[in-house]
Design a binder for these strands. Structure first.
Length: 895
RNA sequence: GGGAGCAUAGCUCAGCUGGUUUAGAGCAUCUGCCUUACAAGCAGAGGGUCCGCGGUUCGAACCCGUGUGCUCCCACCA
């Protein structure tokens, strides 16, 4: 079969993915084997695959494929999250394009559109994961609004309500005016903004001269002011406390009060108090018994509904319906016009924005559902201790602190959202305003028959998305809807969770809570936190910057394996990765390298000769024996190298050091296998190859593919099948065991490599043409070792003859490698000065080195305190250095 | 404002228990090669004040202190 010049991934990827699927390799059912379970962090149904998903899912696939090849029952569960805010926003946007407003639709009509949208677009991201080679058990695909899942969420809500953990209350919440819903604290992102500090004077109500000046960043809330507050110790204002001032524009009389909360050295030391629009002001308001006057509606526009009628004047009526930011400018102008604006200063502040819509958050007084987190955690103390005590291990470990800190400072969780897309809150209101919580209306009627007579309407709101996703690891196995079923008992707790650090609070912490609270068990044993994928310059990837590459385009261009390689090779555990397309090129080149190695091996296929064993025959000629010894050396060396790397890789993967493991495999394949081993055993042009060498080579190559497969599944599966006739697939191959490493042969291999490199360097420096053959005379104490590597050495440095000598050979290039002297015969003119310079440079280095060692050994305290093995090592270093120095000095004399 | 982390070659990073040949890898760079698997390649080379300063130690990239510069998390001083 003719193999293409380069590896061509497209067809091969399609072929193998469907082959794996057709054979059901990714399916998992409980059996006697140990389970290895990963639940995929469910992407939003609105999502398209981006670099973050690519990193995250590549890591999961590596772990799951490795587990599968270790003979474990590997189960990786895919799915999507209904993502209430994000999806509802998309659907509203889609409807707007069709000229439909959400408000013109009933809840049922809107949800019909939403489901339609979900069916159409919701699966795209999962299809894209197939292109990456992700070995997910697709039969288990779940959705956080599947009927059973939905019911489970409701059930948990009712349970927590009955336990007194969920409550309803009027609180200051984070209000997103764009999506007109409350948000949890975690959904608010603070951003630095350049704003202004406006100094506004409130004149005294008694008509006396002057007034009190406050500094505010939010003049648009002035109409809701109910007091001015100063620090009780502030000498400037002490006398004014208790006086009344008049709010500009609205002309309301408000008192000056005192509270330690106010810092005297900020602004003017006087604070305007607006309990309806600021969390702190609200607290202050409660403490001092002040009214909260709301002046902004759900969309952040001015409303005068709560203002006293007799204060409403034409100016205020003119403000009606004006957006808060426009209103800010307008009010400032109006205050300036009446001479009460003292000055304006630039000010750097922070504003909270919505994680989903980026709208600036309003603090707003609102009736919402909350979860009492302190109480919840106190009932399930393992939530905090499991992570602290490493029952759940975080990688990197530092995430533990973040988790602990959040737990210690946890606040109540606002779980209601003013949205329709999501699990509707199972609470019903009667006409008197009482509410009843139950799984369903029917359940309510059954448990409280008297409610049958009431006119009940269900709460319009739905639950925070994370109130459903926290059940993910158990409910994908129906752990809530069908408690203790065989599947959940087998797969839960799951093994490893791979996710971004950014959702440690949103999701990871809450899954731990749910695990202990609802199943009395941890949800996973290890959590691998990935960093963020940034661009080459370290910037976050974002649509605005346009620096987010098109992942599918990259897969088309480089192949999925190359993309997986590229994202993994520069991906230190838990740190951000700087994505650079050149890493993908490296991956593509790596594919080609392996492909070309395959081509070489396949070329040998037709010219295999049999020599039964690679053993030195007593009756064979010396030349043949040397050849055999050489083959033996190469085979044994690579065998040892392979085993060494296998065990390193194993250790690294156990520690989640995936990037390092990949680097080690890359180097094993490219350097040790291709550059060294294959060159060593490669027969001359159109020469035969020994059967045993051929078979060993195929077996090595196979092992390499096995080792690499979790990282680069397609190319390895393809090569696996092209190497030999197979009736199995690499994807599910198990038993790539590690044998004992022969350390001695590894040392000899290292020596051989250093001599080859050293002599090639001599050739380069002396401008010996690649085609020119040289003759090498070696002065060494270890002729035996050289005998076993002689023919490899000769071939690798293009030498026609190697001989062993005991003294300098005249008219040759002299060099020293290790403790051996080499004399090279060449047709090129000798560059004595150059050789001298090199030797002297080496001598200088060795002398410097020797000096440091001698200094150590000359230090009595070192000799007295250092461990014996350290001392012995230093002595060996000294002896070695001295020996080498002697050899170089001798060589220098000979020049 | 509080906390965590980072700083090693041009770039991205290893360096795990302080001692393992006066610091390692990949990429990039330079030199020479179209050598019959591979120029998306081969061979070789150069490149470092381990952020500054101070300390502990027989010995420090590693431990401690301090300064500087970055990054992240938490916290609504209007």
């Amino acid at each position: 079969m003719e193999l293409s010049k380069n590896f061509e991934p497209q067809e091969i990827e399609k072929k193998w993915y469907s082959h794996w699927m057709n054979n059901g390799y990714f399916k998992s059912v409980p059996d006697a084997r140990e389970a290895y379970t990963i639940v995929m962090p469910p992407p939003n149904v609105t999502g398209v695959l981006h670099m973050g998903h690519c990193l995250n899912n590549t890591i999961q696939d590596i772990l799951i494929r490795r587990a599968r090849m270790q003979g474990k029952n590997a189960c990786w569960v895919p799915g999507t999250d209904h993502a209430s805010i994000a999806t509802e926003a998309k659907v509203v946007g889609m409807l707007r394009e069709r000229g439909i407003t959400k408000s013109s639709l009933s809840r049922e009509e809107f949800l019909a559109y939403a489901w339609e949208w979900k069916e159409k677009y919701g699966g795209i991201i999962l299809e894209q994961l197939k292109k990456m080679g992700c070995s997910l058990d697709w039969d288990r695909t779940s959705f956080t609004m599947d009927p059973d899942y939905y019911k489970s969420v409701i059930e948990i809500f009712v349970k927590l309500y009955k336990d007194g953990i969920i409550y309803r209350g009027l609180r200051m919440v984070n209000w997103d005016p764009a999506s007109k819903t409350a948000l949890s604290d975690e959904e608010v992102i603070f951003k630095d903004v350049d704003s202004k500090l406006y100094y506004v004077t409130y004149p005294f109500a008694d008509g006396s001269e002057g007034g009190i000046t406050v500094a505010t960043t939010r003049p648009e809330t002035i109409l809701g002011d109910v007091a001015i507050c100063v620090n009780p110790l502030d000498e400037r204002y002490k006398a004014l406390v208790g006086k009344e001032v008049i709010v500009p524009v609205i002309e309301r009389r408000i008192p000056i009060i005192a509270d330690e909360y106010v810092t005297s050295d900020f602004g003017t030391g006087a604070l305007k108090v607006t309990p309806a629009h600021d969390k702190n002001d609200n607290e202050l308001g409660k403490k001092h018994n002040l009214k909260a006057l709301n002046t902004l509606d759900a969309e952040g526009k001015f409303t005068s509904e709560e203002l006293e009628d007799d204060l409403i004047n034409d100016t205020i009526i003119g403000y009606t319906g004006i957006d808060r930011f426009v209103l800010r400018k307008k009010i400032v102008e109006d205050i300036d016009a009446i001479g009460q604006l003292q000055k304006t200063e630039d000010y750097k502040g922070q504003v909270g924005t919505s994680e989903r819509t980026s709208a600036v958050i309003e603090s707003r007084l609102s009736l919402q559902w909350f979860m009492n987190m302190k109480k919840f955690i106190s009932l399930n103390p393992e939530i905090a201790s499991a992570v602290a005590e490493d029952k759940i291990k975080f990688h990197p470990n530092k995430a533990k602190n973040t988790y602990a800190h959040w737990m210690d400072n946890i606040k109540d969780w606002c779980i209601s959202r003013q949205l329709w897309w999501g699990q509707q809150i199972p609470a019903w209101y009667d006409e008197a305003g009482n509410f009843y919580v139950a799984e369903s209306l029917e359940a309510l009627h059954n448990s409280q028959p008297e409610t049958r007579k009431l006119q009940l309407t269900q709460d319009e709101d739905c639950l925070d998305t994370w109130f459903s996703s926290w059940l993910w690891p158990m409910e994908v196995f129906k752990g809530i809807s069908k408690p203790n079923n065989a599947e959940v008992n087998y797969y839960y707790p799951t093994t490893t969770l791979v996710t971004g650090q950014d959702i440690i609070f949103f999701w990871v912490a809450r899954m731990v809570m749910a695990g202990y609270a609802f199943k009395q068990e941890l949800p996973f044993k290890d959590v691998y936190f990935t960093g963020m994928v940034r661009d080459k310059q370290g910037r976050k990837m974002s649509k605005q910057l346009g620096n987010s590459p098109d992942l599918l385009g990259l897969i088309d261009q480089y192949g999925a394996d190359a993309v997986r390689f590229g994202i993994m090779i520069a991906s230190p555990a838990g740190n951000d990765i700087l994505f650079d397309e050149s890493a993908l090129e490296q991956g593509r080149n790596f594919n080609n390298k392996m492909w070309n190695a395959l081509k070489l091996v396949k070329m040998w296929e037709g010219r295999i000769v049999i020599s039964d064993k690679l053993e030195v025959a007593s009756n064979a000629t010396e030349a043949i024996n040397i050849e055999l010894i050489t083959y033996n050396f190469a085979l044994e060396w690579f065998e040892a190298k392979l085993n060494e790397v296998k065990s390193e890789v194993n250790e690294m993967l156990n520690q989640f050091r995936l990037s390092e493991a990949l680097k080690v495999i890359y180097s094993l394949i490219w350097d040790d296998f291709c550059s060294w081993y294959l060159e060593w055993v490669k027969p001359g042009f159109e020469q035969p190859i020994d059967k045993a060498v051929y078979e060993k080579t195929v077996s090595f190559f196979t092992s390499l593919m096995e080792l690499l497969h979790p990282f680069m599944p397609f190319v390895t599966e393809e090569i696996y099948h092209l190497l030999d006739e197979r009736n199995d697939d690499l994807c599910i191959k198990t038993g790539n065991d590690i044998s004992v490493v022969d350390e001695q042969i590894l040392r000899e291999g290292a020596l051989l490599k250093s001599i080859i490199s050293g002599l090639r360097d001599v050739r380069n420096k002396n401008q010996i043409k690649p085609k020119e053959k040289i003759t090498v005379h070696i002065d060494t104490a270890e002729v035996d070792i050289y005998k076993s590597i002689e023919s490899i050495l000769a071939k690798q440095i293009n030498s026609e003859q190697i001989s062993f000598v005991k003294e300098a050979v005249a008219g040759t290039i002299t060099t020293v490698i290790g403790k051996d002297k080499f004399y090279i015969e060449t047709e090129q003119p000798l560059n004595i000065a150059g050789q001298k310079e090199d030797l002297e440079k080496e001598l200088l280095h060795l002398n410097g080195f020797l000096a440091t060692v001698e200094k150590k050994l000359g230090n009595e305290k070192f000799v007295a305190n250092a461990k014996p093995e350290v001392l012995a090592l230093e002595q060996k270093k000294k002896a070695d250095a001295e020996e080498k120095i002697k050899i170089i000095e001798e060589s220098l004399k000979g020049l």
